Measured scan of single mutants.
Amino acid sequence: MQYKLVINGKTLKGETTTKAVDAETAEKAFKQYANDNGVDGVWTYDDATKTFTVTE
């Protein structure tokens, strides 16, 4: 399945996608991506759209 990440950071904004077997695996990949880019915020997930959002 394909999952999307929407980033609403202080210095980084945008979107990225990943393919993963489940939401938990996608979340780990997205959190690593956010961490690598210095984004630390509040996470939400919408199962209907398979979209994670992180807001600083």
Rank of each mutant, 00 (worst) to 15 (best):
D36P: 02
K4A: 05
I7T: 03
T51S: 04
N35F: 15
K50Q: 09
E24L: 12
K28N: 08
Q2I: 15
K31T: 05
Q2F: 14
K10S: 10
A20N: 03
T11L: 11
D36N: 11
K10A: 12
A26C: 02
V21R: 11
A20T: 05
A34C: 14
V42I: 12
T16A: 12
Y33P: 00
A29G: 05
T49I: 06
E27C: 13
T25F: 06
F30P: 00
G14P: 05
Y33C: 04
V39S: 03
T25L: 07
T44K: 06
K19P: 05
T55P: 01
T17L: 09
Y3K: 00
A26W: 01
D22G: 04
V6I: 13
D36L: 11
G41L: 03
A48N: 11
V54H: 01
D46S: 06
L12W: 14
A23F: 14
I7C: 04
I7Y: 07
G38I: 04
E15Q: 10
T51C: 05
A23Q: 11
T55H: 08
A29R: 13
Q32G: 05
E24M: 12
L12R: 07
G9W: 07
Y33D: 02
T17C: 10
E24Y: 13
T55E: 08
Y45E: 00
M1S: 12
G38L: 06
V6N: 05
E15I: 12
M1P: 08
A20I: 03
T53D: 03
N35L: 15
E27Y: 15
T11Q: 10
T16D: 03
I7G: 02
A23S: 10
T11G: 08
F30S: 00
T44V: 10
T44F: 09
K50G: 05
K13M: 09
G38R: 06
T25C: 07
K10G: 10
K28L: 11
T49Y: 05
L12N: 08
F52D: 00
A20F: 09
Y3T: 01
D40M: 14
K4P: 01
Y33L: 06
G41Y: 03
T53Y: 11
A23D: 05
N37W: 13
K28M: 10
G9F: 12
T53A: 04
N8V: 14
Y45V: 02
D40E: 12
V6Y: 08
K10R: 14
A34F: 03
K13D: 05
V39Q: 03
L5M: 05
I7L: 09
G41A: 02
V6T: 05
V21D: 11
E24W: 12
L12E: 06
T18Y: 13
T18C: 13
W43S: 00
K19W: 15
D36Q: 13
G41F: 03
A26F: 01
V42K: 08
T11V: 11
N37R: 15
T11R: 09
D22T: 06
D36H: 08
T53S: 06
T49E: 06
A29T: 14
Y45M: 02
T25W: 06
G14Y: 15
T25Y: 06
D47H: 11
A29Q: 13
E27R: 14
D40W: 13
F30A: 01
T55S: 08
A34Y: 03
K10W: 10
T11E: 09
E27Q: 11
D36G: 06
K13C: 12
K19A: 09
K10Y: 10
V21F: 12
